[in-house]
Amino acid sequence: MQDSFYFVAGLASVFAFAGIFSLYSAWSSKGAQPLRSWLGWAMLVLSAVGWSLAVGTEFGISIAALIVMLGVFALLAVRGEWPSGPRPIEKQRSGGVSEPGALRQLWLRGILRFLSATFLPLVSGIVAGLLFFGFTGLSDSWRLVGGAFVSVTIWTLAVVWVCADKKLLRPSAGLLAFSVLSGLMLKLAIPAVAA
């Protein structure tokens, strides 16, 4: 039993390292290398299968992923371009000091964006979770757990939207409209749902 564990786990680890190396050679060479690339992914999948056989699916997938991540960092450390000799002299533009007024406006805009990214998505995320809990016909536990995941996912994506959209008004209005409409829907339908 113990011997077979070490054999399977060892083989799965070899697959992981071979997969990493295959992807490395595919992505580092000039021109498309689809065969090597697909081979690399296939090896990584085989590694996950091997680890799953050795320690169960849940642990196996997690451990295989951890090995790939650490394996890549080890490869990067070995193959990376490490500096030697004196530090390069950094170029620096001169006279680029911003006007205090412009700088203040930039900070103000940043703060406003951050506040919008924090509070509006929070409301949207929670409302989305409540909608999932209130209106999906799943079991209680799935509505609860699924609602929490929906909440976190919508919240995250809404933060990304608010942060990345140059026109802050657009995501703000969108999320506000979603929250208000969903809130109204919940408010009106709750007696029926709770009953």
Partner: peptide, 30 residues
């Protein structure tokens, strides 16, 4: 949540994700 948003936006802000997957140029500029 904000960390998850940072990860998602970081990945979306990276158009050459495959091309640069193994480039590690520590000898370049700071």
């Amino acid at each position: 949540v904000l960390m998850a948003a940072l990860i998602v936006s970081g990945l979306l802000a990276h158009p050459k994700i495959i091309k640069d997957a193994f480039s590690f140029r520590l000898s370049g500029s700071k």
